[in-house]
Amino acid sequence: MSSVSDDRSRDRIFWHCRRGLLELDLLLQRFVARHLDALDDGQTAVFVELLEYDDNDLFDMVMKRAEPVNERLSPVLALLRDV
């Protein structure tokens, strides 16, 4: 499992916040600045999982036009919806 204390995966996360949609670039940049340091390992793993989604699917979830297929994602998604 990845952990933010692990510099390497943290750096990887930074880069994976570079997206095809400007909207996501902006929101993820805010999310990382506000929340990344405070996430525990489990939450970080969920965030990494969210980053794996296609841009438009992730954006729809963030904008509440779609709900995540798995409730496991909801708490971190809630933070992302709020930034």
């Binding site: 570079r18 997206r19 095809g20 949609l21 400007l22 296609d54 841009d55 438009n56």
Partner: peptide, 12 residues
């Protein structure tokens, strides 16, 4: 590609 192919800006 700098990013995964389907994350290219064409997606916008």
């Amino acid at each position: 590609s700098k990013v995964f192919p389907t994350r290219s800006h064409t997606v916008a």
